[in-house]
């Protein structure tokens, strides 16, 4: 029983890692009022650029850095289209997704050619903590990007709730007119959050290609970026609840694999559905909770004259 729990929990934590980076990035962007459906495309670009850098140089930190830079460039692109050009955010995100998917596949075809592996970040046992029974085994024998993803949650909470910057981000998403009249630059804040979101999506991709899977293939993320966006709504723009959602989704997924491995006789299609069904049902069951969506989400800011 103990081994089963450890196995499922470790699996869930690994599965949740890319979602955490991408969902927190998206949460921050949405809190400032920008919806980006193109997370998956940015993740793919991050995954490819990190993979390629590591393949050519063997330097993992450089790979991570390149993924962050590429993510930031995509963030700038998204911010330019959504904030400066005030495009319809639902559709521009789809454009970003199609573009990122195509470009990463194209670069892979022309620059790498065939499937290869790299040696990525290896598990890093945290001294002392990793010796705690069960908990230590589950949480403290992971790789550095997994730790990073979990460390991001309190960090994001702190920034969003306890700093002037967080206050400005929320103000811009909640009531841009008021924020504007108080001298907060809507454009600057939104550029900042979207670029930050791009960087985090880049890390999310890198966590797949140079830490968890250590390989790249066309469409490596297989739609994870869309799940990451969905988890933002599950989390109702709160980092801790985003974490709950990501862990819920990933745990159910880990359990359904476990159910299959142990030959429990349910058609695989139904077990595969479970993470999606459970996420919806749990969210519906929480209908009574109070949600404060950023009022200006998906609404470009126009200064009244």
């Amino acid at each position: 029983m103990e081994a089963i729990i450890i196995g499922i929990a470790k699996s869930a934590i690994r599965l949740a890692t890319p979602y955490l980076y991408a969902s927190i990035g998206e949460t921050i962007g949405q809190l400032s009022g920008v919806l980006n459906l193109g997370v998956d495309g940015v993740m793919l670009m991050g995954a490819f650029s990190a993979f390629y850098t590591v393949l050519k140089t063997g330097n993992l930190w450089l790979g991570l850095l390149v993924a962050i830079v590429v993510g930031a460039i995509f963030g700038l692109l998204i911010a330019f289209i959504n904030v400066t050009l005030k495009a319809e955010q639902g559709i521009s995100g789809i454009g970003v997704y199609i573009f990122g998917l195509g470009l990463s596949s194209l670069l892979f075809s022309t620059m790498v050619g065939t499937v290869q592996t790299v040696s990525g970040f290896s598990p890093l046992s945290i001294p002392w903590l990793s010796n705690i029974p069960i908990v230590g085994e589950i949480f403290f024998h992971q790789n550095i990007l997994v730790y990073g993803a979990f460390a991001l949650i309190p960090l994001a909470w702190f920034i969003l709730n306890k700093t002037p910057l967080g206050l400005s981000i929320r103000a811009v998403g909640q009531n841009p007119e008021a924020a504007d009249s108080l001298g907060v630059s809507i454009v600057r804040i939104r550029y900042f959050t979207v670029v930050l979101g791009g960087m985090l999506s880049g890390i999310a991709g890198a966590s797949l290609s140079i830490a968890l899977l250590n390989v790249f293939q066309q469409n490596l993320t297989n739609g994870m970026g869309f799940i990451a966006v969905a988890l933002v709504y599950f989390g109702a723009w709160r980092p801790a609840t985003v974490l709950t959602g990501a862990l819920l989704f990933s745990t159910v997924n880990a359990i359904q694999i476990w159910v299959q491995v142990h030959g429990i006789n349910i058609p695989s299609d139904f077990t595969l559905m479970m993470p999606y069904i459970v996420t919806i049902v749990v969210l519906a069951a929480m209908a009574k909770r109070r949600i404060h969506p950023p009022a200006a989400l998906n609404k470009p800011f126009e200064r009244g004259e």
């Binding site: 692109l77 330019f80 289209i81 050009l85 495009a87 521009s92």
Partner: peptide, 25 residues
């Protein structure tokens, strides 16, 4: 490579949706 087609389609969506605002404004 077929991926170029994907990248190109994505670019077209981005450019057209980006230009939409210019037209509107």
């Amino acid at each position: 490579p077929s991926a170029l087609i994907g990248a190109l389609n994505g670019l077209i969506v981005l450019f057209v949706v980006g230009s939409e605002y210019l037209r509107r404004s």
